[in-house]
């Protein structure tokens, strides 16, 4: 079976490379991060720009992530996000009445911040850097105080990406050392530790993502070696946490794969990369089988430019894909 990807809408968001994009979990908001040192916010219903967050970072903004809004008083909490920059700092912004304001600048990393990610409760923020470390920060409700609760130093090279499970406090990271590592809080103390190292890629791991839900524990990763792999936690009576490489997805990229995203709605995986392709994969037979087929390939998704980021999102009950590239453009794809 194949599906059709149609370009639904295109937004010329930035003058320079668009590195990262994030869609808010509960509100129709898009944030984009760029080498032009700005982060822009768009309304996904109207496709209009809401604001541009600038004059804070001295170098490229590499990563952006919306903080999830949780709790029983959703209406009272206004949206906020974190940006990570090559200038080694992280900025936290939020809507305050009608204005967007800078709430905090977090310092700690020695050099370029490559990725930031919030856990499901919005209480923890993870950041990673070329300094080979991952820092976990505890955030207060107002986004004013960030306390570092752990520094994870097991990767031997730049950490390129971090991502959280959508309901459990499990963190995954990918690195220039070609490995994926999984982390969680250790039982006995409050410190965090690595509980699995996934080796198999033959190049930098540019992107990671967890399968949504708790039925199965799986991770998808994409790499400079042109492949996308799915890793699986297998039950073992004697040993805990045995992770295996379940599948290498059918080959669809000819160059580095920069971003990957696992849909919580359809169970499909999407990947984008240097070759300009947007690829969608679907699992055969039943979910969990580990047999994947390519169901869509969009060539030149951003013209001749590289594609840096891909995400699934839903709007009014319909699922879309959204991509950002070196052309500074955001493309929204209907399926």
């Amino acid at each position: 079976m194949t599906i059709q990807l149609q370009l639904h809408h295109s937004i010329r968001a930035h003058q320079d490379k668009l590195w990262s994009l994030s869609v808010h979990k509960t509100q129709p908001l898009l944030a984009t991060a760029s080498s032009d040192k700005t982060c822009k916010i768009f309304n996904l219903s109207t496709k209009q720009e809401i604001t541009s967050l600038d004059d804070t970072h001295k170098r490229s903004i590499r990563t952006v992530a919306w903080k999830p809004i949780v709790g029983d008083d959703d209406d009272e909490v206004e949206p906020s996000l974190a940006c990570g920059s090559f200038d080694s700092t992280i900025s936290v912004w939020g809507q305050d009445q009608t204005e967007w304001s800078l709430f905090a600048v977090i310092e700690g990393h020695e050099n370029e911040v490559k990725c930031v990610a919030w856990n499901n409760s919005g209480e923890l923020l993870a950041s990673c850097s070329r300094d080979k470390t991952i820092w976990i920060w505890e955030a207060d409700r107002d986004n004013e105080e960030f306390e570092c609760i752990s520094v994870l130093q097991d990767h031997t090279q730049d950490v390129k990406c971090v991502t959280w499970h959508d309901s459990l406090d499990l963190l995954a990271s990918g690195s220039y050392d070609d490995s994926v590592r999984l982390w969680r809080e250790e039982d006995d103390d409050e410190d965090w530790g690595c509980f699995a190292e996934l080796k198999g890629h033959k190049g930098t791991v540019w992107g990671v993502g967890f399968e949504k839900g708790e039925e199965r524990l799986r991770v998808v990763s994409c790499s400079d070696d042109h492949t996308v792999k799915v890793w699986k936690c297998v039950d073992d009576a004697d040993e805990e946490d045995v992770w295996i490489e379940q599948s290498t997805l059918p080959s669809a990229h000819q160059r580095a794969v920069y971003s990957v995203c696992w849909s919580g709605v359809s169970g499909r995986i999407a990947s984008v990369g240097s070759d300009g392709r947007l690829v969608v994969y679907e699992e055969d037979e039943e979910a969990g089988s580990g047999k994947w087929n390519i169901v869509a390939v969009k060539e030149l998704a951003h013209g001749v430019y590289e594609v840096n980021s891909v995400k699934w999102f839903s709007l009014q009950g319909k699922e879309y894909l959204i991509t950002g590239g070196d052309d500074g453009v955001v493309n929204i794809w209907s399926i």
Binding site: K114, R130, D224
Partner: peptide, 15 residues
């Protein structure tokens, strides 16, 4: 080779 062809490192170096 790895360093020269890492898009992110190259771009950061150029800043």
């Amino acid at each position: 080779n790895k360093q020269l062809n890492d898009k992110e490192r190259v771009f950061a170096a150029c800043e």
